[in-house]
Computed example of a mutant assay.
Amino acid sequence: MKKEFKKVGTHDGKFHADEVMATAILKEIFIIDITRTRDKKTLDGLDIVYDVNGGELDHHGVNKVLREDKIPYSSCGLVWNKFGKDVIAFKDKNLNEEEIDDIFNFIDRGVMEGIDALDNGIWIDKSEVPLMNISSILSGFNPVWYEKSNENENFNRAVEFASSILNNKINFKISVLKAKGKVMRAYESREMPEVVILDTYCPYIEALKEVDKDERILFVIFKTKTNYIMQTVRGKDGEDRKKLPKAWLGKRDQELANVTGVSDSIFCHTGRFIAVAGSLEGIKKLAELAIKEPYEHESIMNKIIKSVRKLFIKK
């Protein structure tokens, strides 16, 4: 597919994440010539105008367009809603309609809705720990008040950064969809009922959730450039279905080999969710040992404490 040329426009002055990301979206499917102004006559002569001048892609009117969860769209959400599926189809012509919808919703929920909410004055980050978000990062490209820099140059740098974010998220979701067949084949052909073995790493979590309805899989093994990794699988409650043995915690090399009896043992994370060995045979032996290890019985008090913590986090 060939990109069309479009004259596009948004407002000048201080820029925000919504029109920056909207511009990044448009750049994916059009060759754009952007004008930043509030002059109505100029804007009326452009092909696509957003976040200014009224119209379908400006969210500043009284009657805002709302999502199903009542979050109002900002300009980036409106632009994504109109052009997002074209962006995805342009990215990979082999995607079917269902896959395009899946990616569209993933990006809409994971990228656009947060920007929309914050731009409309809805604060969505209630964590006690201050977290950076896309909106604050993109807005941070504005010149500081005492700086005599070119505002449009700063805007363009912000757009390039936003393009990286957008492309990374789309590419990741495409990779998840492409991994689905590999994960399902590994699931169907597994040697141990509790273990899936992949010949290389791929994003397996989503596909595994889909196929492993009974939550039988405890560990996933995959090959890296230099060794083999075994990783625990989390259940619907967000907890590891089974942690690696306590005796392995934080141990490396010979110390871990002494504990496990596996000569090429390399490492076990202190969180007991990753173990590493030098060979497929070695990592499979570690998996067998981890499966045989008795389950830990968590105290009722610890379960209550975890449940209370989760409630506070949600609030």
Rank of each mutant, 00 (worst) to 15 (best):
H16W: 00
A22V: 06
I29F: 09
I31K: 13
D33G: 06
T42S: 07
D47L: 05
I48F: 00
I48L: 10
V52P: 00
G61Q: 14
V62D: 13
V62M: 12
L66P: 07
E68H: 07
D69G: 07
D69L: 07
F90W: 08
D92S: 10
D92G: 02
K93N: 11
N94D: 13
F106W: 12
I107Y: 00
R109T: 15
G121Y: 01
I124D: 03
K126Y: 12
S127H: 08
P130I: 05
N133M: 01
S136D: 14
S136R: 14
S139A: 14
S139T: 13
N142S: 04
N154Q: 13
R157T: 05
R157L: 14
F161W: 11
A162N: 10
S175V: 09
V183R: 04
E188D: 15
E191R: 15
E194G: 02
E194V: 04
Y204W: 15
E206R: 12
L208P: 03
E210A: 11
D214Q: 12
F219C: 03
F222L: 11
T224L: 11
T224I: 12
N227D: 15
N227F: 12
T232P: 01
T232Q: 06
G235L: 09
G238Y: 07
G238H: 02
R241V: 06
K242A: 01
G250H: 05
R252V: 11
R252K: 14
D253A: 10
E255F: 03
A257W: 01
G261W: 05
C268R: 05
C268P: 02
T270K: 13
F273K: 09
V276F: 00
A290Q: 06
P294T: 09
E298Q: 12
S299N: 09
M301R: 13
K306C: 04
I313D: 10
K315N: 12
